[in-house]
Amino acid sequence: MNAPITKQEPKLLPGDLAIWFFIFMELLVFAIAFISYSVMRIKNIEMFNEYQLTLNTELGAANTILLITSSYFVIRAIHAIKVDDIKNCTKWLYAALAGGTGFLILKSIEYYDKFSEGIDLSTNIFYFFYFSLTMFHFLHVILGMIILLFIAIKTQRGGYSSEDHVGIESGASYWHMVDLVWIVLFPLVYIIR
């Protein structure tokens, strides 16, 4: 007699449900911003194409690599805590923070270059979108790093274990959202023309 086919229960969302509603809200705002950028460009194609060339694609690509790598470190932290490896979990979280710090440094260099050329949010519509989109994302990176730092310290003090690590998963989900947004933002603003 065949064993009854048991329908596999769907996995739970990693982390806290509240963080996911926060993530969905942020993604909605970024979606509106990305679409606004694309629509505004239709009326200003030459300008967008011209000023897009003034952006530092090297720093943009380097920042993409930093965020992807940092996100990978957060995955390793999750895997470590699932086997109660607190030392490695902490190490990977601090490595992720280093990646985030690198992102903020490169971004600040990019802004410094622009500001020292007298370019800012009000220079033209392209730069308005460039600065508002990237600065909004910049703030999300900072918030994500504050969350990761809090989690890393709590992990170091034994605040998480294989039985209880919802907090780490919540922070990880937020950090991956920051990465996901940049994955769209970088080609849209720096590359697609």
Binding site: P10, K11, L13, P14, V74, I75, I78, I183, V184
Partner: peptide, 16 residues
């Protein structure tokens, strides 16, 4: 890249 982040990084594979 987005699918990889959602499926693998965010571990939403198998979630409802």
């Amino acid at each position: 890249k987005g699918v990889i982040i959602i499926r693998e990084y965010m571990e939403l594979r198998g979630v409802s």
